[in-house]
Design a protein around this nucleic acid. Sequence first.
DNA 1: AGTGGAAGCGCG
DNA 2: AAAGCGCGCTTCCACT
Length: 851
Amino acid sequence: MASLCPACQKCGLYKTTTGTVCLAGEGPKNAKIMVVGEAPGREEEKTGRPFMGASGKLLREALRKNNLDSVFITNTVRCRPPDNRKPTAAETKACREYLDYEIERIKPKIVVALGATPTKVLFKGKAKVSQHHGTIIDDASKQYRGYVSYHPAAMLYDPGIEHTFNADIARLGRTLRNELPSTDVKWSIVRRGNVAQFIHEFTASPIFSFDLETSGLFPHDAKGWINCIGIGLPEKTWVIPIMAPGFYPSRKDPKNKKNKKKHYYRGSPWSRGDALKFLIRFLIHIQKKTEKIGVAQNGKFDNLWLARYIGKRFKIHFDTMLASHTLDENTDNDLKSNARQELDAPEYDLTTAEKKGNCDPFKLYQYNARDCGYTLRLKKVFHRRLKQEPELERLFFRLVMPAARALEDIELEGKTLDMEKFEELGLSLRSREINLVAKLRKLIGHEINWDSPQQVRKLLYDDLGMECTVFTKKGAKSTGEAAIIDLKGKHPIIDAMIEYREVTKFYRTYVKGFRAVIVDGKLYISYKIHGTRTGRYSSRIHSIPRDGSVRNLVGAPPGWKFIQADISQAELRIIAQTSSDLEMRKCFLEGIDIHWRTLMFAISAGYIKGEYANRVIETVEQIDGVNLRITEACERLLEVGHEAAIRIWPGWKEGRKKAKAINFGYVYGMYEKKFIQTAKTKYGWEPTWDEAHACREGYFSLYNELPNWHSKQKRLVKLNGYVRTMFGRKRRLPGIESKDKMKRMEAERQAINAPVQGTIGDWKAAVLVEVHETVDRTKFRLVGEHHDALLGIVRDGCEDDVLPQIVQIIRKPKLLKEFKIHMDIPMDGEVEVGSWGAGVAYKLPNIRKAA
DNA sequence: AGTGGAAGCGCG
DNA sequence: AAAGCGCGCTTCCACT
C-alpha cells in the first residue's frame, strides 16, 4: 500500500499541473465520513487543500448545517487536469491506489461519492448519479457503506440541483445519527381466515391506496394477468394474492425445508379464483358507498388493468405521481424516488422479472405492500404541500385529477384502425426497404450498415471524399438530413439514402412499433399527463406522421365517424392575449388568418423574395380584374383571405407555410442561423441569411409589442425564478441563476415559451374533461388528444347534436370562470369529420360567429 | 447481457 | 459569441 507521493508520475497530470502534485485529503484521522470529489481545481491547486473553491464552499456549508464535522474530504484524482477538463479513465485508474490508501487509513463508516467520477470508480453499476443519489449502498465485500450525490459544482451550472444536493446531505446526517424513522410498511396477506377483518378495516377507513402487480405493462393484452392487489390503509397494508392462473403460492411454510424447492402449487390461494374477483368488486362497491378517498401512484395504469380483468375500477381522487409533477415539474415523479426523498424510505425495488411475478410470491407481495404503504404516506406529504400553494391545489384537484380519470375511459376506448390497409402499408414499406438496400449496395459496390452514423460518415466523407458543412453537437461530421441534403446531386446514393431513412423510420416505428399495441383492430396508446415540464401531455401517438400513410388509417368502428376537434391557432391566440400586441389582436378580433397576415406583410415589404410579388399582383387581377401595385395588392389579398387565394393559385399554400415558419420561429426567440435550418428541413424553404434577417426585423416591426412581452417574461423569471400558465401551473426555471450564460438564456426562452405552451395544454385538458363529463356518451366518445386537439368518434347522424357543443366548450370551457381567466381574444374550434387527417371540415349548422 | 448516451427523425 | 420550445422511438455503440 503506497502512501501519497508528492513526486508521483503515475499519469501525465504531474506534467501539466502548476501547483501541488498528488494533493492529499484533509480531515480528522478518525472521521466517520469520507467525501470524495472529482479532482483539484484552480483554488485547490493553489492552496494544496481539497474543496477550497466555490463548490467547496457549498459543500462545507451543507456539512456544517447538518452538524457533520467528522468528515474527511478528498478527491478521486489528485492532480489538476488541464483546461478544466474531467479526469480520464486512465487517470482515475492510476490514482485509485491513493484513494484506497486513504480509505484504509481513515476507515470511514460511509464513503460519499460526489458526482459521476468518484461514483464510477467506487460503486460499479451505480454510475447514474441522478438515479442513485441519496441512497445507501451496502456492499458486503466492503468495510464501508456507500452514498452518492451530485458534485456541488453542478449546482453552479444547474441551480435546480441545489435542492436535491442539500436534501441528500441532510439525509446523510440523519443516517449517521440513526435518526431515520422506522420506515417499513406493516402488512398482511388477505386470506380466507382474515378477509372479514380486512373488509371491516377497509370499510372503517376514510382513505385507502391501491396498487397492482401485473404480468406486464400493457393492460389491453388478453394474455396478461394480475399477480396481486395491495390495499393500503393508514395503519396497515393488505395484499390480495392472485398470481398467474394455475400458479399460486403455497399455504405451506416455505421456510420448512421439505417445502423449500416447490412452495408453488397449482390451484387458487382460495378455493375459487372468482372469489377474489368478487372481493375486488365488493371493495369497489364499498368505496362508492362510503365515498372513500382513493389514492394511487399512476393509478390510471392500475385502473386500466382492473377495468380489463375485473370489469370495474376504483375512483382515484389523488394520484401521487401527478401531485409530484404538479408540485415540481423538474423532479422525478416515480414512487421510489419520492419515497426516498420525502419519507427516507429504504431501497426496496425488485428487478423487472421479479416485478412481473417471476419470484417468490412472498417477495412480490411484500414489494406490493411497500408500494401501497409509501403511496399513502406520500399523499399526506403532497397534499399538505398543495394546500400551501392554493393555485396548484386548484389546478391539481379541478384539472389534473379529473383529466386523469377521463383518460382512463379514453385509453380504454382505443383507436379503431383499418387493419387491412395497415398490413398493406407494412408490406409495401418492407419491399421498398429491401429494394433500396440492394440499390445502395450496387451503387457503392459493397455492404455497409446504413443505420450506422459511423459507417455512413466514413463512406461519405472519407471514402467518397465529399465535403461536410454540418456538424453534430459533439463536433462530428453530421450525417443527418440537414447535412446530406447539401450533397444532393453530388452522388446518386444521397437520394436513395434519404428514401431509405424515411421508409425504415416509417416501417420500424409506425408499423412494427404500433403493431405491438394493436389488439383486435384497435390501437391502444397511453398518454402521460406528467410527460412534459410545461403541462402538455406526452404520448407516442403524437409523432404519427402527417403524410397520412398511417394517420388516415385511424378511423371509427361501424356506425361511427372519427372526428378531430382543434383549438384553432391556439398558441398565437394565447400570445396575442398575453402580449397585448395590437396587430395580433387585430387579426384575431377581425378574423384575419395570422400566417396570411405575416406573409402579405413580408412580401409587401420585400422580405420574401422570388415570384411571390408577381403572384400577388396576378392573383388580385384574376379576382378583381384590376392591376394594383404591390403594396395595395397585398392589402387586397389580405382581405380576400388565404382560402380564396389558394383556389386561384395553389402555390399560396406553400407560401403560407413559410409564414408559419416565421411566426413560430421568431416568436420564441429563434435567430437567423437556426431559422434557415428549420425552414430548410421543416418547410422546404431555404432563405438566405439576409432574407432570414430581414424577416426577423420585419416580423418584430409588424408585431411590435412582442419584444416588450419577451422582456417582461425575462424580468418575471429573474424576479421569481418561475413563470405560470393562465391556469396557475408553475414552470420553475432555476437555470436563470446559472453562472453559464447559455443556460440563463435558455431559461429566458423557456420563460417565454412555457406559459404559452402550458396554457394551451391546460386549456385542452379543461376541454377534455368537460367534453368527457357532459357530452352524451351514447352519441360521442373521446379516443385521444393531440396537444391542441381532441380526437373522438361520433355516432352516424349525431354530428349536429354533439359537434356544436364541443366547439362551444373549446371556445369557453366552464373552468375558465373558476380559474378567473378572462380572454379578450376569442378562442375558436374547428372540427374535421372523417378518418384522421383526411376528414372534411364540419360546418356549424346555425350561423354563429365567435363572440 | 443489459444499460445509457448519441444520433437521427417523427410530431405540435 | 450565440441564441425557438416541447416531446417519443429506434438503432448503434461503448461500457460494464
